[in-house]
């Protein structure tokens, strides 16, 4: 923590963007695995994928790297935000109206929603799968007995309240990504007169595609399973 505090503003931004891009790659992997729930007919593929992720030794080690990525991104985000509030102790009385990237103004707000979502998401699935809370059924695929993760997901999304909550939270994730992806490139110094507009458009497109992909899962499950 004190090491992170003592970093210069530019160093903090570089770490923030590296961690952000790392978490973004995790989102892609997570989405591609989750989509098997609605693409494979009996969801056996998803259960096998979840079993692999839950038992593969490399993944077991790497998940701690992922946790570290989350923690660094969150702590740095908080430090940056508090310092930014301190830099203007007396706010303007007339609301500032300078033109700026819209979601960039609300990164801390979207982050708080995503953080709350993350905790609930953990309680819903991760901790249950690890056998720490709740109960999870079992299935046998090709002679291997494993946790019925798909069943757990289907049960949760039978509840419309969870479907709505997940969709809203995922929209906020999309808002966060919309600014975050292109911002990471700028923080890393990757700005170019020709390519930066492409990066901004690609970042927005990816934010939309990822959000739609994730939103589709609870919706399809609620209406078809």
């Amino acid at each position: 923590m004190s090491n992170l505090l003592s970093l210069s503003s530019v160093a903090k931004k570089i770490w923030m963007s590296l961690m952000g891009l790392f978490l973004f790659t995790f989102l892609l992997v997570h989405l591609s695995l989750n989509l098997t729930m609605i693409t494979s007919p009996d969801s056996g593929l998803f259960n096998e994928a979840a079993h692999f992720m839950g038992t593969n030794p490399f993944i077991q080690v790497f998940q701690w790297v992922l946790f570290a990525g989350f923690i660094v991104h969150i702590i740095l985000g908080l430090i940056l935000q508090v310092q930014n509030w301190m830099a203007r102790p007396n706010a303007y009385k007339k609301k500032a109206s300078s033109e700026q990237s819209f979601f960039s103004k609300y990164m801390i707000h979207t982050a708080v929603v995503i953080f709350v979502f993350l905790i609930i998401h953990f309680l819903n699935f991760f901790l249950v799968a690890k056998g720490l809370i709740g109960e999870i059924g079992e299935v046998t695929i090709d002679g291997v007995t494993m946790e019925d993760m798909a069943g757990l997901v289907f049960d949760l999304f039978a509840n419309p309240a969870y479907v709505v909550f997940y969709i809203i939270a995922l929209l906020f994730l999309g808002f966060h990504l919309d600014h975050g992806i292109q911002s990471a490139f700028q923080s890393l110094g990757l700005n170019h007169p020709k390519y930066t507009p492409c990066i901004k458009n690609a970042g927005r497109l990816l934010a939309i595609v990822i959000t739609l992909g994730y939103v589709l899962i609870p919706l399809v499950i609620y209406f078809t399973k």
Binding site: S9, L80, N84, M86, S104, K105, H179, Q186, S187
Partner: peptide, 11 residues
């Protein structure tokens, strides 16, 4: 000096 950190708002 206590200036804030850049969050790429481009204002």
């Amino acid at each position: 000096i206590g200036f804030g950190n850049c969050t790429n708002t481009y204002a």
